[in-house]
Simulated assay, not measured.
Amino acid sequence: MFGLFKSTPPAYHNLTAAQFAEGVRRSGAVLVDVRRPDEFAGGHIPGAVNIEVTAPDFAQRVAALDKAKPTYVYCRSGARSSKAAAQLSAAGFTQVYNLPGGVLDWPQPLTR
């Protein structure tokens, strides 16, 4: 009976920094920085929108995004973005990509 219960793999994909960089350059990709606004202001990946994952309105704000577009999420080190990616997948986003090493692994310059 126990064999019937399988753990479900995450509905999002972890990418290397190179894969993530390639993905966010694609037309139609949505890039979401889930850090606090002060962290975002200190430097973020160009083109990112800031939607803080720990904010009370996170679910409401991401609901305004197009669920069918490839959605790339990141934070400082990958912990918060993993949680955000899981929430996006659970909310019906079909193409969710996470940067597990966060901006600490980002090889290109950040913008302010």
Rank of each mutant, 00 (worst) to 15 (best):
A17V: 13
A17I: 14
A17P: 13
A17S: 15
A18W: 09
Q19D: 13
F20S: 01
F20T: 01
F20Q: 01
F20Y: 02
A21M: 10
A21N: 12
A21C: 11
E22A: 15
E22D: 15
E22T: 15
G23V: 05
G23C: 06
V24A: 01
V24F: 06
R25N: 11
R25V: 00
R26W: 00
R26G: 08
R26S: 12
R26E: 14
R26D: 06
S27V: 04
S27Q: 14
S27P: 10
S27G: 03
G28C: 04
G28M: 04
G28T: 06
G28L: 06
G28S: 08
G28H: 05
G28F: 05
A29N: 08
A29W: 05
A29R: 05
V30G: 03
V30M: 13
V30S: 10
V30W: 03
V30R: 11
L31W: 09
L31K: 05
L31G: 08
L31T: 09
V32L: 14
V32F: 10
V32Q: 08
V32M: 12
V32C: 09
V32N: 08
V32S: 09
D33R: 11
D33W: 10
D33V: 11
D33T: 09
V34L: 10
V34E: 04
V34R: 05
V34Y: 07
V34F: 07
R35V: 09
R35C: 09
R35L: 10
R35N: 12
R36C: 02
R36M: 15
P37G: 11
P37T: 10
P37F: 11
P37Y: 09
D38G: 00
D38T: 11
D38V: 12
D38Q: 13
E39K: 13
E39T: 07
E39S: 14
E39P: 00
F40H: 12
F40M: 06
F40V: 02
F40Y: 15
A41H: 01
A41C: 01
A41V: 01
A41I: 01
A41M: 02
G42C: 00
G42M: 00
G43Y: 05
G43N: 03
G43M: 03
G43A: 07
H44K: 06
H44V: 04
H44N: 08
H44F: 06
H44A: 11
H44L: 03
H44P: 03
I45D: 02
I45L: 03
I45F: 03
I45G: 03
I45E: 02
P46V: 12
P46N: 12
P46Y: 03
P46E: 14
P46G: 08
G47P: 05
G47S: 07
A48C: 08
V49C: 11
V49K: 14
V49T: 13
V49H: 10
V49F: 07
V49Q: 15
V49L: 15
I51N: 03
I51K: 02
E52L: 02
E52M: 11
E52Q: 14
E52F: 10
E52G: 02
V53D: 00
V53Y: 02
T54F: 13
T54M: 15
T54G: 07
A55E: 01
P56V: 10
P56E: 12
